[in-house]
Amino acid sequence: MAVPKKRTSRSKKIIRNTLWKKKGYLKALKAFSLGQSIFTGNSKSFFCNKYQR
């Protein structure tokens, strides 16, 4: 028989939410940094032709 689960505490919910948001922030920061390095031409991992027509 199905039994209802206990409610998750508010503090645990906030901690999980904060970690979830932090992961997204770090991914965005990394993507921005990579884009910036490609734009300035300092990228070591990507090759891009700046003067493409």
Results as ranks from 00 to 15, higher is better:
7 R>N: 10
23 K>C: 04
39 F>V: 11
28 A>G: 01
25 Y>W: 01
25 Y>N: 05
48 C>Y: 04
18 T>W: 06
19 L>V: 01
14 I>S: 05
23 K>M: 04
7 R>G: 02
48 C>T: 04
10 R>E: 07
26 L>S: 14
27 K>A: 11
5 K>H: 03
43 S>R: 02
26 L>A: 10
45 S>Q: 04
14 I>G: 00
12 K>S: 14
6 K>S: 13
3 V>E: 08
14 I>Q: 09
1 M>S: 09
33 S>A: 11
6 K>L: 15
19 L>R: 11
18 T>N: 14
41 G>E: 00
33 S>Q: 06
5 K>C: 11
47 F>R: 06
44 K>N: 10
14 I>R: 12
2 A>N: 09
52 Q>H: 04
6 K>E: 15
20 W>F: 09
45 S>A: 02
13 K>F: 06
27 K>R: 12
52 Q>P: 03
32 F>H: 03
12 K>V: 08
42 N>C: 05
51 Y>S: 00
3 V>H: 05
40 T>I: 13
6 K>M: 15
33 S>T: 13
22 K>D: 01
44 K>V: 10
37 S>Q: 15
5 K>E: 09
47 F>Q: 07
1 M>C: 05
22 K>W: 09
40 T>V: 02
4 P>D: 13
10 R>G: 00
42 N>M: 07
36 Q>G: 05
15 I>R: 14
34 L>I: 15
24 G>A: 07
20 W>N: 13
38 I>C: 11
30 K>R: 13
27 K>S: 03
42 N>K: 13
8 T>A: 08
4 P>Q: 14
25 Y>P: 00
39 F>S: 10
35 G>K: 07
14 I>L: 10
7 R>P: 00
40 T>E: 08
21 K>G: 02
50 K>P: 03
31 A>M: 11
49 N>T: 08
43 S>G: 04
34 L>T: 13
16 R>W: 01
29 L>P: 00
46 F>A: 11
40 T>Q: 07
41 G>F: 03
49 N>E: 10
39 F>Y: 14
34 L>E: 15
24 G>P: 01
22 K>F: 03
50 K>H: 02
4 P>M: 15
4 P>K: 12
8 T>E: 14
12 K>P: 00
28 A>M: 07
29 L>A: 15
33 S>N: 05
39 F>K: 13
29 L>R: 10
35 G>N: 14
16 R>Y: 01
42 N>F: 08
12 K>I: 12
4 P>C: 11
48 C>F: 07
8 T>Q: 12
7 R>K: 15
41 G>R: 01
28 A>F: 07
16 R>I: 05
43 S>I: 02
11 S>Y: 06
46 F>E: 06
48 C>P: 00
3 V>W: 02
12 K>N: 13
52 Q>D: 07
4 P>A: 12
20 W>R: 07
45 S>D: 12
30 K>S: 05
25 Y>F: 02
15 I>F: 08
4 P>H: 13
17 N>D: 06
15 I>M: 05
1 M>T: 14
42 N>S: 15
17 N>L: 09
30 K>F: 07
37 S>K: 10
28 A>C: 09
42 N>H: 11
22 K>L: 14
5 K>S: 11
47 F>E: 12
3 V>A: 12
16 R>H: 06
30 K>G: 05
40 T>K: 14
26 L>R: 11
33 S>V: 08
11 S>N: 08
35 G>P: 03
8 T>V: 15
41 G>I: 00
44 K>R: 07
